[in-house]
Computed example of a mutant assay.
Amino acid sequence: MKEATLCTLCYIERDNKYLMLHRVKKENDINKDKWIGVGGHFKDLESPEDCLIREVREETGYELTEFDFRGIVTFVYGKSGAEVVEYMHLYIGRNVVGEPIECNEGELIWIDKKEIFNLNLWEGDKIFLKLLDESKDFFSLKLVYDENEKLKEAFLNGKTMDIG
C-alpha cells in the first residue's frame, strides 16, 4: 500500500450556484474531463484550513473569507482496493473576495446547483454533493473504487450505503 495523502476540496457557493472546475488542462490527470470543486494536496506543515485557503487562492484568484468544514471523505482505490488512500477534507465556501484568475487545471464556471448532477462527476462525488445539500451535519464518507474507476462500496459514518 502506498502512503496515504491528505487533501482539501471546496465547493464555493454563491446565488444557489457552486463554482465548479472542469478538469481539462492537466496531462495525466485522474480527474480528466470531470467536474469537481477546487482544492489540492497539503504542503509541509499546513493545516487543512491553510491548504484550503491556499488552494482556493491558487486555483481561482479568490480569497476565501468564510467556510464550513463539512466532512472527511476517504478514497480507497486500485487493484487490491488499497493501492491508494486519500483523506479529503471537504468544505463549503460561503464568501470569496477578489478577482478571478484563469486556472491552469481547467475551466472555472458557476453552475446552478440544480444542474450539478447533469455534469460528468465521479459517482462518489454525487453522494457527498447530495449530503452537502440535504444536511448540515458533519459526516465521514468512505468511497472504494476498483482499478477501472468504478465505485464498488460506500460507507457513511461507518455504515454501508446502498449504491446500487
Rank of each mutant, 00 (worst) to 15 (best):
F75I: 13
D33C: 07
G40C: 10
L121P: 05
F128W: 13
V24A: 07
K159L: 06
N95A: 08
L119N: 11
F117P: 07
F117L: 15
V85Q: 03
L52S: 13
E58G: 09
F69R: 14
T65C: 00
R23M: 06
N16L: 11
L119E: 11
L121E: 04
L143R: 11
L143K: 09
V76I: 11
K136H: 14
E153L: 06
Y145N: 08
T8F: 13
I92T: 15
V56G: 02
L45V: 03
E149Q: 13
F67N: 03
L141Y: 01
R54Q: 10
N28K: 11
K17M: 07
E115F: 03
S47N: 11
G40W: 12
K126A: 11
K17R: 10
H89C: 00
G81P: 04
R54N: 10
G124N: 15
V97A: 13
Y145G: 08
G78K: 02
H22C: 01
L121R: 05
N157A: 06
D15Q: 07
V96R: 01
K2E: 14
C103W: 05
G81H: 07
E58C: 10
K150T: 05
W110S: 08
F155P: 02
V38I: 08
E134N: 12
D146C: 09
F139E: 10
R14N: 09
E134H: 06
V38R: 06
S47Q: 12
E58H: 07
F138P: 09
V76F: 10
N157M: 05
G40E: 10
